[in-house]
């Protein structure tokens, strides 16, 4: 059985940051990641700069990935899943299963869980037609699209869209789904994406459908006032009820309550982007860790030597995930030093 001082579960930005910080203290770290590459969810994010940087932190993720790849003394096990843990006299024994089915055990003095989140499964909101209507995409799909292609085109016919609707709070703040929490980052990332796309593709009309705009980061105020000043960006405090596909001209029709008059209106769009929220990563749900009422992991699992960090504890953006991972590093260092 292999052994290490600290086993970090999850190779996303939180896990990578924790590994890099612990390595500075001479602690031997093994990082285990289910995907075949490091970076987690944030590795696919695009740059959301307009004329200035819009502080989305996606570039920082790339830098951290490159940094950890250049460090030969951090072991990264890619393509391995953490499936279980049991205590032993001096620490913990983690069970790992590779994507090909091999099982290994690893002994560690401390374990850091940084397994992260999955974007909310948008097909669960059937009324929006995700997965059925081609031109309804999630914000995550849009990130990947912008990163790989550099510009937005409609998935169905590759034409440039002229009217885009962003629908917020998909999967969050939703009593019907049982998700009574705010995913905290969606308003900010959607607005940054609007600012970024608007800077390069000038003749698009954006409509931002929301409940309450949640701030994120220092100086969010400046981004918001900039966007409110743009003539082609509309803010509509109302969430649409249903999206219909109009096959004749391949457009999307949406019904919503117009906030000022209170009347039901219908409008037609070329492309709809669903700002999906966050849910705990499904592989973490099977592990024996206690969850809080919102379905994320509790920070205090009541076990010495088990630490948790990152978005698996609750919705976070990249900035806070990095801060949180750095914070947990000092606590792991403290714990190992006191043994």
């Amino acid at each position: 059985m292999t052994q290490t001082e600290v086993l970090i579960v999850g190779g996303g930005i939180a896990g990578i940051t924790c590994a890099l910080e612990l390595e500075n203290f001479g602690i031997s770290v093994t990082l285990v990641e289910k995907d075949e590459k490091l970076g987690g969810l944030a590795a696919d994010f695009c740059c959301k700069a307009s004329h200035v940087c819009n502080k989305c932190f996606a570039c920082v993720v790339d830098k951290k990935i490159k940094e950890i790849q250049n460090k030969s003394d951090i072991t990264s096990l890619l393509g391995w899943e953490f499936t279980g843990v049991r205590a032993n006299s001096a620490g913990w024994i983690g069970t790992l299963k590779s994507n090909k089915g091999h099982i290994e055990e690893i002994y560690a003095q401390a374990i850091v869980i940084a397994g992260g989140i999955d974007p909310f499964e948008a097909t669960l909101k059937g009324e929006y037609g995700y997965g059925i209507i081609k031109n309804v995409i999630t914000a995550r799909d849009l990130e990947v699209l912008l990163r790989e292609k550099g510009e937005i085109r409609r998935p169905s016919d590759q034409r440039y869209p002229q009217k885009i609707a962003f629908i917020q709070c998909v999967g969050s703040r939703d009593a019907e789904l049982g998700n009574l929490y705010c995913s905290e980052v969606c308003c900010a990332y959607a607005l940054r994406m609007i600012a970024s796309v608007n800077y390069r593709q000038r003749d698009i009309q954006f409509s931002f459908f929301y409940m309450d705009i949640q701030p994120a980061g220092a100086n969010f105020h400046e981004l918001l006032s900039r966007l409110r000043g743009e003539r082609n960006v509309r803010f509509i405090r109302s969430l649409p009820s249903k999206i219909y596909h109009q096959p004749l001209n391949d457009t999307l029709a949406m019904k919503f309550i117009e906030p000022l008059s209170g009347e039901i209106t219908e409008e037609v769009f070329d492309l709809v982007v669903l700002s999906v929220g966050m849910t705990l990563r499904k592989e973490l749900k099977d592990l024996p860790f206690t969850q809080n009422e919102d379905g994320f992991l509790r920070e205090d699992q009541g076990e010495r030597g088990i630490f948790l960090t990152g978005a698996c504890l609750g919705p976070k953006d990249i900035e806070r995930s990095i801060t949180h991972a750095k914070a947990v590093s000092s606590q792991v260092y403290d714990y190992l030093k006191s043994r």
């Binding site: 695009c46 740059c47 700069a49 996606a58 570039c59 993720v61 790989e148 292609k149 550099g150 390069r200």
Partner: peptide, 13 residues
Amino acid sequence: FNVSTNGGVRLLK
């Protein structure tokens, strides 16, 4: 040109 670490495609264009 202004670019960020993940903006290679846009830069190329």
